[in-house]
């Protein structure tokens, strides 16, 4: 049995002259929750389409649990929620979910899925009468009802409000704790940071960073050390660890790769005034990573 739930090897996909995915390699072991993070047009949805067998790659190899994607889908190993669509009119939520469950060998009971997706009150509602957020939860329920090993979600929380997002992730953590492998794409940085135990940043169809969110921040982002300073400040830019210096009025912001050394040096120079140290967030890392690629 293959220990990787997902394995993409040097996968490339062109749409006409546009290279959507460019030699992307990615392996996800079983039981992990992985975020695919990137700006719009980075190649997230194309990558997900290829790993679900919906989009044939131009070159490279895709396998899920050691099978090709179409076979893995047929074996019921995968449940997926595409970015949009998948709902049909004139059926009820219960009818739709029972049908999808019936295509799998060992589906979850309908009641359990309704509860997981927070739609316990909706089984008799016609699908065409749902609000945007309700429709999103029904689509999510369709991905879960087959009790698949791998759950793939393309921008799962896009249509949800803050409260619904919180409930959604609570449910996902429950699934992750049962050993399910979860891959989701997002452009919400906080979501990737909080929900995934690994973040894969892609831009222009390539993996530009891969690790825990803490690792990614450490590698590419810089801690901000700010102080109040007057007069000539250029010397601050030459302190240990400082990579970049920004002046905002009388505040000087030092971007540092070694904040401890920077603060010590500031103290020795007697320049500690209204000191503030802000750790890097994933947003900084994201901007740094994706900007680097476009230069």
């Amino acid at each position: 049995m293959d220990s990787n739930a997902v394995s993409l090897t040097s996968v490339t996909k062109n749409f006409g002259p546009v290279r959507a995915v460019d030699g992307l390699t990615l392996a996800i072991p079983r039981g992990r929750t992985v975020a695919l993070l990137g700006p719009n047009g980075a190649g997230k949805s194309t990558t997900i389409g290829m790993l679900l067998g919906l989009v044939p790659p131009d070159s490279g190899h895709v396998s899920l649990f050691g099978h090709d994607p179409e076979r893995a889908v047929r074996l019921g190993e995968v449940g997926a929620m595409p970015q949009e669509g998948g709902l049909i009119p004139r059926v009820t939520v219960g009818e739709l979910l029972s049908f999808v469950g019936g295509t799998y060998a060992a589906p979850l009971p309908l009641g359990q899925v309704l509860a997981l997706a927070q739609i316990a009150d909706l089984p008799d509602r016609r699908v065409d009468k749902l609000s945007g957020g309700q429709a999103q939860r029904v689509r999510f329920a369709m991905a879960l009802i087959g009790d698949p090993e791998l759950i793939v979600l393309d921008e799962p929380t896009a249509a949800l409000d803050v409260e619904a997002r919180r409930e959604f992730w609570a449910g996902m953590r429950g699934l992750a704790s049962k050993g399910k492998t979860i891959l989701f794409s997002t452009h919400y940085l906080d979501e990737a940071d909080e929900q995934a135990d690994r973040v894969v940043v892609i831009n222009r169809g390539r993996v530009v960073a891969d690790g825990t969110s803490a690792e990614i921040k450490r590698v590419v982002a810089l801690t901000t050390v700010s102080v109040t300073a007057g007069g000539e400040v250029a010397w601050l830019g030459r302190l240990p660890g400082v990579r970049r210096l920004e002046v905002r009025g009388d505040r000087v912001r030092l971007r540092s790769s070694d904040p401890d050394a920077t603060v010590m040096a500031l103290a020795e120079a007697g320049a500690v005034r209204n000191l503030e140290v802000t750790p890097a967030d994933l947003e900084d890392a994201f901007v740094a990573l994706t900007a680097k690629e476009t230069v």
Binding site: L52, G53, L54, V73, R74, L75, G76, V78, G79, A80, P82, E84, G85, G86, L87, I88, P89, V100, T103, Y104, A105, M142, G146
Partner: peptide, 18 residues
């Protein structure tokens, strides 16, 4: 045509149905 526009044909491809 409606099924295609609604993404239903794609959803069916994501179930174990052949």
């Amino acid at each position: 045509a409606e099924d295609r526009a609604a993404g239903w044909l794609r959803q069916l491809r994501l179930t174990p149905l052949t």
